[in-house]
Amino acid sequence: MKRKITLSTIVFYAALILLAMAYLLPAYLTVITSLKAPVDISLPRSWEFPSTLNLSSFGDAFDLLRPNIVNSLILTVCATFFSTVLGSLNGYVFAKWRFPGSEILFTLFLFGMFIPYQVVLIPLFHTLRAMHLYGGLPGLILAHVVYGLPITSLIFRNFYAQIPDSLMESATLDGAGFFSIYTRIIFPLSIPGFVVTSLWQFTQIWNEFLWGICLTRHSANPITVGLANIMAALPVLLIYILLGRYFIRGLLAGSVKE
């Protein structure tokens, strides 16, 4: 069946395209500005194409930020790894091994998701100092793991809630216990859950600023701190576009099912 072009279709697509353009404007501005030579940059001509292409700002930014990118990568990968693994185990217990009080405990966990980071800032660096973790990446990783736990536990709990209980029971009858059910049944089934959670965590940690600036010494600064616009956004943007559909699913798992 061929779609007829009606007035409403035209209005519909016009609205869609206009909105898309509005959303792309900031990106356009960023890209052309970053291609301009410093002398070329001025407010009244901010929308115009650069007179000459100047790619040096990319190279400069990259050279300047290389250590920060490395830090951010180490930080993000480690923190994402630990928080998703722990979150997956927690979610497994909360979804499949409920015990008296587990729901209250879970609710108390969730609460941690919503605290403004400012509230814990001062005690956090005192504690990290006492643990001799202040200033370096391990301390920052610990912080991100801990404050990532509520959301990862939530996503995994909701994910595991969809796995039928009969699968667990069947495995119990087959002779599997707590850990063997996890490693042999639950874990192999949670790859999508891991993708979703890691993406969420990756984005959050990569973009985080306040702790990055307050909890690390210079040599351990993540990228947001050693920021230059387009460079900080690119890796996430890329990963995001590639794995977009998982991303959306993850957002949903984390927020809707509750």
């Binding site: 660096f125 202040y134 200033g135 010494r217 040599s219 701190v225 920021l227």
Partner: peptide, 27 residues
């Protein structure tokens, strides 16, 4: 180690410096 913290007239840098001093890690 050239530790610079960007941000208008040192607002960020001063905050970071404070956390570092309080954290017992002076530069």
């Amino acid at each position: 180690v050239n530790a610079t913290v960007t941000g208008g007239s040192g607002v960020n840098a001063k905050a970071v410096l404070k956390t570092r001093m309080l954290g017992g890690e002076p530069p």
